[in-house]
Amino acid sequence: MASKTTFVVQGFELKRKRLVPGQRDVAPTQGGALKRAEALATRLPGAAALCIVADEETGELFTATILGTFGEIPEGFAESLLDG
């Protein structure tokens, strides 16, 4: 099993007075993900930079780590990553 690391930027929007996941983008590097998340949070209520490690063939999630958050993110977002 070969694992693949992907850096993801997750934006959050306000819908019906609740923060919900919105725009998602893949970044080439950890630093790039952090910079994109910070920039995105200037246009949206909040954003998070994530590091996702998954099996290349099956897509099975091994780990999901929050590298940084900017602005507001939903309560329980970190726990939701662990729940899959």
Rank of each mutant, 00 (worst) to 15 (best):
L61F: 04
G32L: 12
G59P: 01
A41M: 10
I73R: 01
F7D: 00
S80F: 01
L44A: 15
P28V: 13
L34P: 02
Q10C: 08
T65G: 06
G71M: 13
A54W: 01
K35R: 14
E57R: 10
G84W: 09
V20T: 14
G46T: 06
V8E: 12
G59K: 07
V9S: 01
T69G: 04
D83I: 09
L34Y: 10
L82W: 00
V53W: 01
A49D: 07
I52Y: 11
L34K: 15
A64Q: 13
A54M: 02
L67F: 03
L14F: 15
M1N: 11
T63N: 10
Q30D: 09
P21K: 14
Q23R: 13
A39D: 14
G59T: 08
F7L: 07
L44V: 12
T63D: 11
T42P: 00
A64G: 02
G32Q: 04
I66M: 15
I73Q: 04
G31I: 03
G68K: 11
R24M: 14
L82P: 03
S3E: 11
A2C: 05
F77L: 11
A49W: 06
C51S: 15
A48C: 13
T65D: 15
A48H: 05
L34D: 12
V53K: 05
A39T: 05
E79M: 04
K15D: 11
L14H: 10
L82C: 02
D83Y: 05
T6L: 10
I52V: 10
T58C: 08
L40T: 11
L50I: 12
P28L: 11
T5V: 13
T63H: 11
T65S: 14
K35L: 15
P45L: 10
I73D: 00
T58A: 07
A27M: 05
F7T: 00
G22H: 13
R16D: 14
A2D: 13
